[in-house]
């Protein structure tokens, strides 16, 4: 199929799809309307279980089983990237040379690193109270480590990042989520049911039953997953070299 025919096809199909979608939009409830039956029930359930952040309650209590599926997707994607981006037989690994870093960049990166890391851990720990949680805090914490790559060099990053440990941490975190779910099955009523632990005082760190535990497991998984993913991509960019030159391979 040549380019011109393809463009025509896209134009025709796109116009038809646009017409259908616009017709569907005109039938949707008005934007900003007051009727949110599921939302109201989710808020009631969240308050009944002393979880101040309703979104965390939906993710780690009411829809905790779906979040397990989401974690599995994340885990599978990490495994897929590790397999796809491995070092093949015809490639070799070059040690990256230290590069000069501008002094303001170095100073700023090293000053911000501990602050960013602490912010990530704070966001994970307060997931049941304030906006944030395991997913967001995990990304912040993992990104904080990579400030070392900006401020120092790749070898400094590799020293604080024993990759095997993070790969194991990823698997341990998914297992911790599963074990918390199984504990609900044994000690309480159902798999991942939030009836195991006391709900605690509203708006304190220990409130929400199993929500903080699941939040911590997710935070650990996301942090490890992001570190492993970025490490694989950085390896491709910085360390692994193709002996036959740029971009060529065996056809």
């Amino acid at each position: 199929m040549n380019r011109r025919i393809r463009l025509w096809l896209v134009a025709v199909a796109g116009t038809a799809l646009a017409a259908l979608l616009v017709a569907a939009c005109l039938d949707l409830p008005d934007f900003g309307g007051d009727r949110h039956p599921y939302g109201d029930r989710a808020v009631d359930a969240s308050l009944a279980r002393h979880t101040a952040n309703t979104v965390a309650s939906v993710n780690f209590d009411q829809r905790a089983f779906d979040t397990l599926g989401e974690l599995t997707v994340l885990f599978a994607a990490v495994v897929g990237c590790v397999v796809l981006l491995r070092q093949t037989r015809d490639e070799h690994r070059a040690r990256p040379e230290p590069e000069p870093v501008a002094r303001p960049v170095r100073r700023y990166a090293l000053a911000v690193l501990p602050v960013a890391l602490l912010t990530g851990l704070y966001v994970i720990a307060h997931g049941q109270l304030s906006p944030g949680g395991g997913f967001q805090g995990g990304v912040v914490a993992a990104t904080a480590l990579h400030l070392l790559y900006l401020g120092a060099d790749y070898r400094a990053l590799e020293r604080v990042r024993p990759l095997g440990l993070y790969e194991a941490g990823d698997a341990v975190a998914v297992s911790a989520y599963l074990v918390t779910g199984l504990a609900g099955l044994i000690g309480a009523t159902a798999f991942l049911a939030n009836t195991l632990l006391p709900y605690g005082t509203f708006n304190t760190l220990s409130s929400g039953g199993t929500v903080p535990l699941l939040n911590a497991a997710v935070g650990m998984e996301v942090a490890c997953a992001v570190v492993v993913l970025l490490a694989r991509f950085l390896d491709q960019a910085v360390e692994i070299e193709d002996p036959t030159g740029k971009g060529s391979g065996t056809p």
């Binding site: 900003g32 309307g33 007051d34 949110h36 939302g39 808020v43 979104v55 109270l129």
Partner: peptide, 11 residues
């Protein structure tokens, strides 16, 4: 979205 509403966080 709901008109005049805030985030669903009750801290």
């Amino acid at each position: 979205y709901r008109d005049g509403a805030t985030a669903p966080v009750f801290s």
